[in-house]
């Protein structure tokens, strides 16, 4: 279980997180939604220890992450994988080497197994035969899928997805959602996803939480979330999917 308690974060004078309290259940897929620039990516970076909170605590299965450094932090991080919003591919490496990188660094599989595992993963994200390309030669959506492959290939216990489907066409977005869902079923990882893909997220997530004004203002099981009566939730949903969300029961 991942628990955030009163997490606060400012950049200079700009306050981004103002006391985030959030519990992410183990083995489930929790999606965080919210307006742009509200700190969703910042929140994910706190969960994996890339950013340290000014105040508050971040617990990952009984370990307080925000005070760890060096080796201890790395030990916890070995359980994580992250898909960055920008994909963050290594642009000096080919697609193949990008996906193989965590396998080789963590020696997860013997070197002769690497091609098979990597190519299998590339096929799953619909990039068969693209292994020799460099990130600069890919479209935004393709980069995202390479980033996804690089995160999934490690078989981590916890995965953070920062907008896995932004910039993809609806068909590819559905493919990626199905892939995430399928991998989740097989490996049972804990997943935290940031997404604007409403209403698709309601069918693939277990939980949905909304971040606004630097706080989690609502969290509910995904089938209940569209019916929440919180005004900010209502406003956000009605704008996001053009009024297609389930109306509040009268």
């Amino acid at each position: 279980m991942i628990t955030l308690k009163g997490v606060e974060k400012s950049f200079g004078k700009q306050v981004v997180l103002r006391g985030v309290n959030l519990t992410i259940p183990t083995g489930q897929l929790t999606t965080i939604i919210g307006p742009s620039g509200e700190g969703k990516s910042v929140l994910l970076k706190h969960i994996i220890g890339l950013m340290k909170p000014d105040r508050g605590e971040i617990w990952v299965d009984g370990v307080e992450l925000s005070r760890l450094t060096g080796k201890a932090l790395n030990e916890v991080r070995k359980r994580f994988a992250m898909l960055f919003q920008s994909a963050a591919l290594f642009d000096s490496m080919t697609v193949f080497d990008n996906v193989a990188f965590p396998l080789r660094e963590k020696r997860l599989v013997p070197e002769r197994e690497v091609p098979r595992v990597v190519n299998d993963m590339l096929e799953r994200v619909g990039l068969t035969g693209m292994g020799h390309k460099f990130p600069a030669e890919l479209s935004g959506g393709m980069k995202k899928r390479v980033g996804l492959a690089r995160a999934l290939v490690m078989g981590p216990e916890i995965i953070l997805f920062d907008e896995p489907t932004t910039g993809l066409d609806p068909l590819m977005a559905k493919t990626i959602h199905d892939l995430i869902r399928a991998m989740h079923k097989v490996f049972g990882f804990t997943a935290v996803m940031v997404s604007h893909d409403i209403p698709a997220i309601f069918s693939i997530s277990d939980w949905v939480a909304m971040l606004k004004h630097g706080q989690i203002i609502a969290m509910a099981p995904s089938h209940e979330f569209p019916r929440l009566s919180h005004p900010d939730v209502r406003e956000f949903l009605s704008v996001m999917d053009g009024g297609m969300s389930v109306p509040v029961d009268a």
Binding site: R77, S86, A88, L89, D91, F101, K106
Partner: peptide, 12 residues
């Protein structure tokens, strides 16, 4: 471009 962050998340 967050590649250094990506390295860190891979415990490198």
């Amino acid at each position: 471009t967050e590649q250094i962050d990506a390295l860190e998340t891979m415990a490198v």
